[in-house]
């Protein structure tokens, strides 16, 4: 696939926001001694990230003005569900924020609902990709799990950095959570990589054109200047680039953060940097997530002449 930056930003930003929110809510549930301001600021951060993600996603749409329609097909479409849950999550976080701000209480209930929505959103986002049956790289529970783990990891890293200002006492705890989440994310993502490396395509050129012969080679795809199908489904990068990006994102999104988070226990000023690095790593990870997926339609679009 050709990775679309709008979707990369949407999923990474909201993912971090969801992770951050889950941690905020957990903090509240564990009755940590922090001011409402911490939750308000945190919620603002969550809203900001998600809003940015949402904004980015609009760039993906041909007709953003009609985007409300995307909520209509929740019965069948995970994308529709994702939009609804995302809106619900944003709304609920906003209510949660207002509740903290107004001091009216109900934060536990609202936060709980928002957390459920955050979790649901991870599921929806993951399922958007799992639902594309033909994309073998995506059709795995690991997809949902990894969206969740990477959201939590980046959310927790962000939380630890954020806590530097709002709740310095919590920093070590957040770092611990971030370490665990990042480690799990590393495991989950590695598992997905290993799985995908072993995938055998069930769809072949033979089944694509219905001719049983071991040697079939395309000579013309019917459009020498390219078409939507040659643009949308190919990353357009060299094999060398693809080979390089895999270790790069693993290092940047997981290995370096693990090391620096540990170092962050003693050098907390590192934490904002860790978040930035991890986020960059996750951008690369998400880019690769799309690029790695080899759509069977590509069997039909291999060669011009």
């Amino acid at each position: 696939m050709r990775p679309a930056f709008s979707i990369i930003f949407l999923t990474t930003l909201t993912g971090a926001g969801q992770g951050l929110f889950l941690l905020l809510y957990a903090t509240e549930m564990l009755h940590a001694a922090v001011t409402p301001g911490f939750y308000i600021g945190g919620s603002l951060l969550v809203l900001g990230l998600s809003a940015l993600g949402l904004l980015a996603s609009f760039f993906h749409l041909g007709h953003p003005s009609r985007s409300w329609r995307a909520m209509t097909m929740w019965r069948t479409s995970w994308l529709s569900r994702e939009v609804i849950v995302l809106m619900g999550f944003l709304g609920m976080v906003l209510l949660y924020l207002l509740a903290h701000w107004s001091g009216l209480g109900l934060t536990a209930v609202l936060g709980g609902m928002a957390s459920v929505l955050a979790l649901g959103l991870f599921v929806c986002t993951g399922m958007v990709y799992v639902a594309i049956k033909v994309m073998k790289e995506w059709v795995s529970p690991l997809t949902v799990a990894n969206f969740f783990l990477m959201g939590c990891a980046s959310g927790a890293t962000l939380a630890s950095a954020y806590a530097l200002v709002g709740a310095p006492d919590l920093v070590p705890h957040f770092i611990e959570v971030a370490l665990i989440a990042t480690l799990l994310a590393l495991l989950g993502r590695s598992a997905a990589l290993i799985r995908n490396a072993r995938l055998k395509p069930t769809t072949t050129l033979q089944s694509a054109i219905g001719i049983r012969h071991p040697r079939i080679v395309q000579k013309a795809q019917g459009a020498m200047g390219g078409s939507f199908n040659t643009r949308e489904f190919f990353h357009g990068k060299s094999d060398a680039f693809i080979r390089a990006i895999k270790p790069a994102f693993i290092t940047l999104a997981f290995v370096v953060p693990l090391a620096l988070l540990a170092a962050g226990l003693s050098r907390p000023w590192l934490l904002p940097l860790v978040f930035v690095l991890q986020y960059l790593g996750l951008l690369a990870e998400r880019w690769f997530f799309f690029a790695e997926a080899n759509h069977p339609q590509n069997l039909y679009y291999q060669i011009i002449s």
Partner: peptide, 10 residues
Amino acid sequence: CIGCKYCAWA
């Protein structure tokens, strides 16, 4: 159609 291209992926 909002032009999300999701159908084309499917």
